[in-house]
């Protein structure tokens, strides 16, 4: 494995989902370190705003944008060809874009399931496949795949999301070994609860009642406590030091340990722990409870 730190300055970084959340903050952090940027998102308006902010702050950088819906394979393939034509050398690819979908598997349609798999799993695989020649043209490049807390543990109601995030984790960990010889690093990121738009933007299965869906979104959103700029800084640190895995937030670190100790029922153990902690906190005098936060 490459022991050299990743060099950001004057490299070219491709970031998906760059119009908001972790991707947007990754773009800012990479620009501060001198990386030229190719930013992808389906939301052209927000993406333009991010790009012009960066151009204003860093007049020496090249910042280009591509508006593409990663669920559309044809559009994604075309975007990849355009990136290759304009940037024969890429030093960093961050597969960050992701979507969420709530609801029990029994009530999901296959179209809904496929939508999550297309964006969270097939799109990063396709983009990586297309850009790999440019990424590995010289040693020193780096690939980041953003998995999830739910790429470590598998709670009910997250069948599509977990399938996609476990899948991308496996893909990413294999590539880490395969690309090491050529001097390209790979980092798999498991965010646990970053305050982004993923919960509010989550699609709801057509068969899921609205009130249940809202409750699901609220539960998901409760987990999101870490500001995305902090998550982006941790990912950038992981890239610089070529870390295999970046776990962000205690809500990712504790389940990671549990998933190793209790591979089959880590979710049960985790929810018992969380339940016990919550119950314990409720029994504390109010002053002590407030002091914890």
């Amino acid at each position: 494995m490459s022991t050299n730190p990743y060099r950001f300055a004057e490299g070219t970084a491709v970031v998906t989902g760059a119009a908001s959340g972790i991707g947007e903050n990754l773009a800012y952090g990479l620009a501060v370190r001198g990386s030229n940027l190719v930013l992808l998102d389906r939301d052209g308006g927000r993406l333009d705003a991010v790009a012009s902010t960066i151009r204003g702050r860093h007049p020496g950088l090249s910042v280009s944008t591509l508006v593409v819906d990663l669920a559309d394979r044809t559009a994604l393939d075309a975007a990849a060809q355009q990136i290759l034509a304009e940037h024969p050398q890429i030093t960093l690819l961050v597969n960050n874009a992701g979507v969420a979908l709530g609801g029990d598997f029994s009530r999901l349609t296959l179209d809904e399931f496929d939508w999550v798999m297309d964006i969270n799993f097939h799109a990063p695989v396709r983009l990586t496949h297309h850009l790999l020649p440019a990424l590995t043209a010289q040693p020193g490049g780096h690939l980041v795949n953003v998995s999830s807390l739910f790429g470590l543990i598998a709670p009910p109601g997250q069948s599509a999301y977990c399938a996609s995030k476990f899948g991308i984790r496996g893909f990413s960990e294999v590539l880490r070994s395969e690309l090491a010889q050529g001097g390209t690093g790979v980092t798999t990121v498991h965010p646990g609860g970053i305050k982004t738009r993923i919960a509010s933007d989550a699609r709801v299965g057509v068969n899921i009642p609205a009130d249940e869906a809202e409750q699901g979104k609220r539960d998901f959103a409760k987990l999101l406590t870490i500001p995305p700029e902090k998550a982006a800084e941790q990912i950038i640190d992981g890239i610089e030091h070529r870390r295999a895995r970046v776990l962000i937030g205690m809500s990712a670190k504790i389940p990671d340990v549990l998933a190793r100790l209790f591979p089959a029922n880590s979710v049960t153990v985790f929810s018992r722990l969380v339940g016990a902690a919550g119950a314990a906190q409720k029994k504390l005098p109010s002053g002590a409870g407030a002091a914890r936060r």
Binding site: R7, F8, A9, E10, G11, V32, R33, G34, G56, R57, H58, P59, G60, L61
Partner: peptide, 14 residues
């Protein structure tokens, strides 16, 4: 950049 938030910046490679 934290001390002078309006500053523009650049990093030179090599």
């Amino acid at each position: 950049l934290a001390a002078i938030p309006h500053a523009r910046s650049h990093v030179f490679a090599r």
